[in-house]
Design a protein around this nucleic acid. Sequence first.
RNA 1: GGUGCGGUAGCCAAGUGGUAAGGCCGAGCUCUGCAAAAGCUCUAUCCGGCGGUUCGAUUCCGCCCCGCACCUCCA
Length: 463
Amino acid sequence: MPIKLFDSLSREIRELRPSHADGVYRFYNCGPTVYAPAHIGNFRTFVVNDVLRRLLDLEFGPGKVKHVRNLTDVDDKTIKRARDEGRPLGNVTQQWTDKFHADCAALNCLPPHEEPRAADPKYLREQVSMIDVLLKKGNAYRSPDGSVYFKVSSFENYGRLSRVKERELQLGFALAGKSQAADADEKEDGSDFALWKAWKPDDGPNKWPGPRGAAEGRPGWHIECSAMSKAILGETIDLHTGGIDLLFPHHENEIAQSECCNGQQFSRHWYHSEHLLVDGKKMSKSLGNLYTLDELVAKGFSPMALRYALLMGHPRKQLNFSLDSMHAAESALATLRNYRASLLEKTSAAENVFTPVLTALNDELNTPAAFGALFSIVNRKDSGVDRASFDQVMFALGFDLSMPAAATAEVPSAITSLAAQRWAAKQAKDFAAADALRKELAAAGWSMLDSKTDYKLEPLKKA
RNA sequence: GGUGCGGUAGCCAAGUGGUAAGGCCGAGCUCUGCAAAAGCUCUAUCCGGCGGUUCGAUUCCGCCCCGCACCUCCA
């Protein structure tokens, strides 16, 4: 069953097919900048890409997919963070790389096959040599301070992806932005962008030998993806993905660099997932309205529920996140856990009843439709459903139902002892005392869940 | 100002030219000493507004209203 995905460049829905002779599907996903914990908006993109990765594995076979996701570990933000904290850059980026990995694992995201870092000496060299080629070919120029810029006017296809020309930036809007100013004097044209940034005192010890004739410094942001994608996946890749905000300028710039350098198509397919909104507004570092995974876990939600909540909306539509959606996700997952437990390990069923779920996913990663199909089947309670076929769709969606439903809260000893008293009273059939103790527990914020032989303590659910 | 996207039940959210998937919440029931959990059942004469095309529109077209995003920090 072919996977169909919208292509941001052709603006059509296209089937995913490998183009290389070895049959390996080459897939590059723009990764995080490691200077702080990723927020749940970042994770929407990574979770969506993880579902895509899983579908590719199912479609082409695990050995026939090469998934690369970079780590941006040298840029303005990482350097600023290191400077502010008085720590070496590599120390800061390692800390946040580790945190990112831990969060991804908690969200049950498959690790990419390769995870190149921009500051890796090997890839620094790749970036520099690419800039050298661009200089030689006349697509780039050195500025007075020793930086190197890409000359946008040298690439006639510039703007095809974002259709930036159609947007006709209005004076006053484009130029009012503060970010324009920083290197305006160095550039020949306002739309040119940095390939190499000459060292400045604020950069501290973070500098590397530059391209021919340029000053020591560090790579511009966009060049890392072009260089690492080429080094690992080759000059033409099958798919390049990221959040919608990367469409312009990041991906537009990548295309310009790569195609000018290599003289051939950079990526055959582009896919962008939409933003997660919080309280109806874009969640962003600059607005400060962001949640992290840890914050949700601290509220008693499970990482799996976040994964579910992030998949509740169509990936190409903005999704408004709320704590209500976390509750909904948690409940829905509980239903799936119970359903799985009711299934037989093996049955004689010939057909996979869950095919409609996979069909929905392969149709543009339509996760909400997939959930609809899934619960329709679950609600039918067909007999003879195979656990393995259910597990296959759980794999595709990336739900590990064995992961804990929620963080197990520490039970205070006072509560433990009240509970023990109540259990004893109940065993003695002193129901009045048992009920009184239940009330006491409730007043302290705890609920006691009895079974025949045992009981559990849970924090009371907040309204 | 330009460029996109969207407005479907209390909340979230698919979808289709032929009469509205699914999740959450809520209600009722079963079970349980109670409570919870679990299971069962129910829950939009209607898809922002006004016109048009059509035998028929939530779905196509036009206009209007509202919201969001992007326009070189950003997943």
